[in-house]
Simulated assay, not measured.
Amino acid sequence: MKKVALLAIGLSLTLMSCNSEPTLQKYFVESTESKDFIAVDLSTRILQLKKTELSPEENKALETLEKMNILAFKSDSTNLKQFETERAKVQTILKDPKYQELMKVSSGKEGGAIYFVGEDNAIDEFVLFANKKEAGFAVVRVLGDDMNPASIMTMLSILKKSNIDLEQLKPLQAMVPQ
């Protein structure tokens, strides 16, 4: 009887500690299974860079970056209601206090924003969210370890030097109007 009581208490504590709150990671996982979304995971290998050609500052910035996850929903005249629903889900998740807004650009219900998770000089995740009713929305998660805004700016300069393997980006071509 004592074992059953201990097992019940342990199970109760486990269930109570499970976070049922929506997270961006859960949203990505659930959405990648849907035909309405396009998901791409990119590692730093896509950049095809030779570390010997980078400055010490660029190498340091590159080392803080782990990967990027891109999730896109393409809207059209047949799925506007679903677009609104999915966009609202993302916006609700991004209202969580752990996502600190860095910058916002908008014109009504369209626009974009950049968020980060972590401390100013020890950022673990940057999130870019952009949406436009006629095109859809995209969420980009830039995951790393101890990133900072300066390292992201350095990463942008590294992108100019890279020989990106565009084959990995083919799934996103469906989002770009022809």
Rank of each mutant, 00 (worst) to 15 (best):
S77D: 15
Q91F: 05
A88T: 11
T92A: 09
A88H: 04
V105S: 13
L65N: 04
A113D: 00
A113C: 11
K81I: 05
I70V: 11
I70L: 01
L80H: 02
K133F: 00
K67H: 10
E84S: 15
F129A: 11
K132T: 07
I123H: 00
A72H: 10
L71D: 09
S106L: 01
F116M: 10
S107M: 11
L128N: 14
K98D: 05
D76C: 11
K132N: 11
D124K: 15
E101H: 02
F126E: 01
Y99L: 01
S107Q: 13
M68V: 15
E86M: 10
K132V: 05
Q91L: 07
L102S: 10
L102G: 08
G108S: 08
N121A: 13
K81R: 13
E110M: 06
L94F: 08
S107L: 04
N59Q: 12
N59F: 03
S107Y: 03
G111Q: 03
E119A: 14
S106E: 15
L94H: 11
D124F: 12
F116Y: 07
G111K: 00
D96F: 09
K133M: 05
K60G: 09
K109F: 01
I123Y: 05
L71Q: 03
N131P: 03
S75W: 06
K67E: 06
L80D: 13
K74H: 01
T85P: 07
S106P: 03
E125T: 11
K81H: 12
N121C: 09
K95N: 14
I114P: 00
V117M: 13
E110T: 10
T64Q: 11
A113R: 08
T85Q: 15
S107D: 15
A122F: 09
E84H: 14
N121F: 11
F83H: 10
K67I: 07
A122C: 01
F116L: 02
L102A: 13
I114F: 13
D120T: 14
I123N: 00
E110W: 06
Q100R: 13
G111V: 03
V127P: 04
A88P: 03
